[in-house]
Design a protein around this nucleic acid. Structure first.
Length: 830
RNA sequence: GGGGAAGUGGCGGAAUUGGCAGACGCGCAAGACUUAGGAUUUUGUGCCGCGAGGCGUACGGGUUCAAGUCCCGUCUUCCCCACCA
């Protein structure tokens, strides 16, 4: 017998598996396929314990599927473009490419040390030209199909990173940059967008998707569908009230279009509010108000700074001096601007109904604007706009509302929509919170946007034959607010694909979420050069059967990749409604201090040290054991000792026959051993299917304890013992693959355990012969009775009543009621 | 403000459908083996109580023979989003 020394067995088996191509995933029509995908890491340099927490159970589950007869593909790659590499370049002068590929080398080594069943031949790196060639190609496809467009738009801008951010990338109460934490400001730039909103409705449909309910709810709320109406408010000339003519034929320069979810309250409008960035602000602002409006616009653009210093969240705004005409009653309505109205939601303009909307109410009270009641609740005294202390939500009858007066609140919405439609001043409309996806980044380390601008022919895609548009390596890292590519002396010079005259390349690069929207397709054939993927591989492997990753991607990556798939499907490139059938999310491993792990907090746990000290098998098992996977937990460094002890004991029990008084063993012991083995097999099989990894490991520990007891009763060496070892090692194999392989060999079994089928439950062996029925009196446990497993409910009842303890409690009187709950429990009411 | 998740021993966590609360592990205590123990091993370990027994799943109610689990209300923590019209 030898000691269990992980550092000796783990590299040995990793090398052998690699040499044998044990985990190579190739098309095999004779087997059902299983595409297991884990969100690919960003090559930050060092593998984090969080990576292991994500990867290890995903690997174990993939291994479980493999043992269940599936042809499993588990690929790995790197989401290699991104800002950190560029920031490091600005800071340290190290080229992002050099840094990124060095980091990938380091992380590859770390990843290999965990013994996962990745097929490294399928590795894909998004910053490789052979990869981003196709990212660019997809951009062009989206452009050609009308899903990519350019617009000037107020965007969030990070003054530190000198780059725009998607709305989804702005974090926190202080609206700071996701990457660097700097509060963002707004800036107007002309940029590329994808029309994600074109798929908003379809993205709300999760039919046939085995995704956590939580994620579906998060995405549904993020997409944020709401039904309402668009209503046109023509501008009023200064000092003029009657604009009936304009109401009939408004043009976009003289009309404010609002989106409202409450068209029924149109008669209660007493003011309007534009977003400070709204294009009509300058037009409606009077000379007298100009200074105030300009000052407010500046303040709104720096909203984050102000928010930070503001003690309360009181609404602020400024009157523009301008008026619009309420089209339902031709009333002159003052136009304000306020930063609580967002240019990026709805139309960037609202009608305000202070009597029935709390935000509008607070604003009106603060600035002394009229509050006009148009809904009178059935059960209160008549409301008075001048004195009411708060807005009143709708329920009751319309009052003071022209032709709608008297309509019940329930019908008012439909009646109002019909009224404005008939009058030609608006229409019913559906609005989404979801915005189109801002793709442009004024950065170097990303895939160049493959577009060329010509004075004569406008924007045109780079011809497919000239892809990829390579990133130049000789650039300067000046954070000037411009893309480094723009400052390159020659790179941007191009020929117009239409007329051949000198033209200019797009110098922005793409959001890296673009790269990660289709990496699951590149894994299919990472070196294929005729298309983004080999159709033969696609037809066999897609869709992804199991996708694992963090919940933090619910509203970004997981929406983008669904959008991407659907857009490509409509172009005939992909097939089926969704890219990923089953999704499972893991929680987060926090630091010991219960805070998110980060270098700045100094609470990062380095997996390399753990592997060195305890071995990958123990670290893997512990990561599965120490928390419920989908919840995560703070790192608990002492708990790992228990896992190490367990593996060491398994090693000793399975390899050391000297400690055993083998030979004599009762039939009862053997029977009991088989029963426990098959019961546990049943439990662990169920837990694997349900991604409940912590109980898989605790189950293995429990069964080990049973086996230890059986060993003490002399079970070693019996056929039942050998079966137990056989099944035990197979169940251990997905969790701790190295020690399982080693013990498999040492117990004289044939390489490789990872080619073995998952064991089958022997239901007969698992069946209990006796059942122990708890007996409660008035709901309190008082006794237990033991009966044969095939006892009837009547048998259970009489056995319970016969119990001495029960008799004592009954004091000779009959029980009031006896409940026999299936074969589970008896409750006697006295 | 909106949405989501959660609250069980000293700690991480178990508990199939409403049916024995605390599996498994850590830690701790006592013993064994040791020159030694941050090794190994045995036993014990929810709380109160000498005991019979009582009390216990954030808090307060409710439904039920029976509630960690279901219902109503409250509090706390974490996450996501946010003047969303």
């Amino acid at each position: 017998m030898s000691d269990y020394i992980p550092s000796q067995i783990e590299p040995k088996w990793q090398a052998k598996w690699e040499a044998d191509g044990l985990y190579n995933a190739d098309i095999d029509a004779s087997k059902p396929k299983h595409y297991a995908l884990t969100m690919l890491p960003y090559p930050s340099g060092d593998l984090h314990i969080g990576h292991w927490y994500a990867f290890t159970p995903s690997d174990a589950h993939a291994r479980f599927m493999r043992m269940n007869g599936y042809n499993v593909m588990l690929p790995i790659g790197f989401d290699a473009f991104g800002l950190p590499a560029e920031n490091a370049a600005i800071k340290d002068g190290i080229h992002p490419m050099k840094r990124t590929y060095e980091n990938i080398g380091q992380m590859r080594r770390q990843l290999r040390s965990m013994g996962a069943m990745w097929d490294w031949r399928r590795e894909a790196i998004s910053s490789n030209p052979e990869y981003y060639k196709w990212t660019q190609w997809f951009f062009i496809q989206l452009f050609k199909h009308g899903l990519a467009y350019r617009k000037m738009s107020p965007v969030d801008f990070c003054p530190h990173c000198n780059t725009t951010l998607a709305r989804e990338q702005v974090w926190g109460d202080d609206r700071h940059c996701e990457r660097c934490g700097t509060p963002v400001i707004k800036k107007n730039l002309s940029q590329w967008f994808f029309k994600t909103t074109a798929y908003a409705e379809e993205l709300l449909n999760f039919e046939g998707m085995d995704w956590p309910e939580r994620i579906k709810v998060l995405q549904t709320n993020w997409i944020g569908r709401s039904e309402g109406a668009e209503v046109k408010f023509p501008l009023a000339d200064q000092g003029s009230i009657n604009h009936a003519a304009e109401t009939q034929s408004p043009d976009s320069q003289s009309v404010i279009t609002v989106f409202t979810t409450r068209p029924d309250t149109l008669w209660g409008v007493t003011f309007m509010v534009l977003s400070p960035e709204h294009p009509l602000v300058d037009k409606v602002t009077t000379r007298e108000q100009q200074a105030d409006v300009e000052a407010y616009k500046v303040q709104a653009a720096r909203q984050s700074d102000i928010d930070r210093e503001a003690a309360d969240k009181e609404k602020t705004g400024v009157f523009t001096g301008g008026y619009a005409i309420n089209p339902v009653n031709d009333e002159k309505t003052p136009i304000w601007i306020a930063d609580y109205v967002l240019m990026t939601y709805g139309t960037g303009a609202i009608m305000a109904v202070p009597a029935h909307d709390q935000r509008d109410f607070e604003f009106a009270r603060k600035y002394g604007i009229e509050v006009r009641v148009v809904i009178q609740p059935d059960d209160t005294a008549p409301l008075d706009g001048a004195t009411m202390p708060a807005s009143v939500p709708a329920s009751g009858k319309m009052v003071n509302s022209g032709p709608l007066t008297g309509t019940s609140a329930a019908e008012a919405f439909q009646v109002a929509v019909k009224f404005i439609t008939d009058k030609g001043v608006g229409r019913g409309s559906i609005n989404y919170k979801l915005r189109d996806w801002l793709i442009s980044r004024q950065r170097y380390w990303g895939a160049p946007i493959p577009m060329i601008y010509c004075e004569k022919d406008g924007w045109n895609p780079v011809p497919d034959t000239e892809l990829p548009v390579l990133l130049p390596e000789d650039v300067a890292w000046k954070p000037t607010g411009e893309s480094p590519l723009k400052l390159h002396p020659t790179w941007k010079q191009a020929k117009c694909p239409v007329c051949g005259e000198p033209a200019e390349r797009e110098t922005d690069t793409m959001d890296t979420f673009m790269c990660s929207s289709w990496y699951h397709l590149r894994y299919l054939s990472p070196h294929y050069d005729k298309a983004p993927f080999d159709p033969k591989q696609y037809d066999y492997w897609m869709p992804v059967d199991t996708y694992t990753g963090g919940i933090e991607h619910a509203n970004m990556h997981l929406i983008y990749t669904r959008f991407f798939h659907k857009a490509l499907r409509d172009m005939g490139i992909t097939k089926g409604p969704e890219p990923m059938i089953q999704l499972r999310n893991q929680g987060m491993v926090l630091g010991e201090d219960n805070e998110k792990m980060s270098k700045s907090r100094g609470n990062v746990v380095a997996p390399d040290e753990l592997v060195e000290r305890y071995g990958a098998d123990a670290v893997r098992a512990f990561l599965m054991f120490f928390a419920r996977w989908e919840l995560g937990a703070p790192w608990n460094p002492s708990g790992i000792d228990g896992t190490v002890r367990w593996l060491r004991r398994v090693w000793t029990l399975f390899t050391d026959s000297t400690q055993v008084g083998s030979g004599n063993c009762s039939d009862d012991t053997k029977k009991m051993l088989r029963r426990r083995v098959h019961q546990m097999l049943k439990r662990i099989t169920r837990d694997f299917k349900q991604f409940e990894f912590n109980t898989i490991v605790s189950g293995l520990m429990e069964l080990f304890n049973e086996m230890t007891r059986a060993n003490e009763s002399g079970a070693y060496g019996t056929p039942e013992w050998n079966e137990a070892v056989d099944i035990y090692l197979r169940m251990l194999a997905p969790v701790s693959p190295h020690i399982a392989e080693e013990l498999w060999e040492q117990t004289g079994r044939k390489y490789s355990i990872h080619d073995q089928p998952w064991p089958t439950v022997d239901e007969e062996a698992a069946r209990e012969e006796e059942i122990i029925i708890p007996v409660q009196i008035n709901g309190k446990l008082r006794d237990r009775v033991v009966l044969p497993a095939d006892a009837s409910q009547e048998d259970i009842k009489s056995a319970a009543l016969a119990s001495e303890i029960v008799q004592k409690y009954l004091e000779g009187k009959p029980p009031r009621k006896v409940i026999v709950a299936q074969m589970r429990l008896v409750n006697i009411v006295i």
